[in-house]
């Protein structure tokens, strides 16, 4: 237990140092543009899995949280020229509040009804933002980047590093939850809410906790996107593709272990980036759909599940 903790934090530190060195050494901007998107999806998938994976409440509202994150940043920039850190922290707070509201919904609806409700929430928020003139309405809004903060000499490189920090934060939280009593409680209520209650698990409190943490992270991850794109419009900020991509990445990787969403996001995220560049963004959505269908049908436990099965078979074969 202790040793794996050390290994994890050493790994995280190495990852951050590598990212940092990359921002200082690599001159070409393209790797940062592409890498940012992949990091963003890793963080989203990990954050989503805290509710969708551990607790089994399938949230199709990733785009709602992401979009609110984007527009929190837009609003703060336009109204106060607030710095990036303030944008991210504010987005996290708003995301936590949204998560709390979402958690209360779990009182009244489960399974597919919860999922449909999260889609509804997304469109309602999107429509509201569309009608909000101050942040540009349906047409969208341009955002000017301030100069980058040293030691970064380029804003995209800075955003790339910030997103890497968010990845580490999300993964550390997700990993902590999985290994603690919270994770065991969530797993129990995912299997059977009534049996969990009758075994002493405070299901509502745990669900609220998962919703708040997941929501805060999803929103925070969305916030830097405004500066990354230098433009925001409701159509793209709240696009359902974020919800489905995030869900697909988590399911493809497997949600029973914290590393699953990371694997799924790297795999699908990288494929999508390559396809977008080499062919078109349509093909990229097609691949998303096909991968989602294939995995849900053929490997419901994701890559993690496949690996476990292979190992299990080998063990049985050996003895």
């Amino acid at each position: 237990m202790k040793r794996s903790n050390i290994a994890f934090w050493v790994g995280a530190a190495v990852f951050l140092v590598a990212i940092f060195v990359m921002t200082q050494v690599v001159g070409n901007q393209y790797p940062f543009f592409a890498g940012y998107v992949i990091l963003q999806f890793i963080a989203l998938a990990v954050a989503w899995s805290i509710l969708g994976g551990y607790a089994g409440y399938v949230n199709f509202g990733t785009s709602a949280f992401f979009g609110v994150g984007v527009y929190t940043a837009v609003f703060l920039t336009k109204a106060f020229e607030a710095p990036l850190l303030v944008q991210i922290v504010t987005a996290a707070v708003i995301g936590a509040l949204m998560g709390f509201a979402l958690g209360l919904l779990t009182l009244r609806m489960q399974g597919i009804f919860f999922s449909i409700a999260t889609i509804a929430l997304t469109i309602i928020i999107e429509t509201t933002v569309m009608n909000w003139r101050f942040v540009g309405g349906a047409a969208g809004i341009q955002i000017a980047r301030p100069p980058a903060t040293p030691p970064f000499d380029n804003y995209v490189q800075m955003l790339f590093f910030v997103q890497a920090l968010l990845v580490v934060l999300a993964v550390a939280i997700s990993r902590y939850i999985q290994n603690s009593w919270i994770g065991r409680g969530l797993q129990a209520l995912k299997d059977d809410e009534l049996a969990a209650e009758c075994t002493g698990v405070p299901t509502l409190r745990l669900k609220l906790l998962a919703c708040v943490i997941s929501g805060a992270l999803l929103c925070a991850i969305g916030a830097p996107s405004a500066m990354y794109l230098q433009f925001a419009n409701p159509d793209s900020a709240f696009n359902l593709n974020y919800s489905v991509s995030t869900l697909a990445m988590s399911l493809i990787g497997g949600t029973s272990h914290w590393s699953g969403p990371i694997i799924g996001a790297i795999l699908l995220g990288t494929t999508q980036q390559l396809l977008t560049v080499t062919i078109s963004s349509e093909v990229n959505v097609l691949v998303l759909g096909i991968m989602l269908v294939l995995f849900v049908v053929g490997a419901p436990e994701g890559i993690i599940g496949l690996v476990r099965k292979l190992r299990g078979n080998r063990k049985e074969g050996g003895t």
Partner: peptide
């Protein structure tokens, strides 16, 4: 107050030991 169920409701994704650990963790 503890109970069993008419139709057993185990935590299906867990081992027997983990099923009991839920109870020990929370109650």
């Amino acid at each position: 107050i503890a109970r069993s169920f008419q139709i057993p409701r185990p935590f299906r994704s867990m081992t027997v030991a983990e099923n009991l650990m839920v109870a020990l963790d929370f109650a």
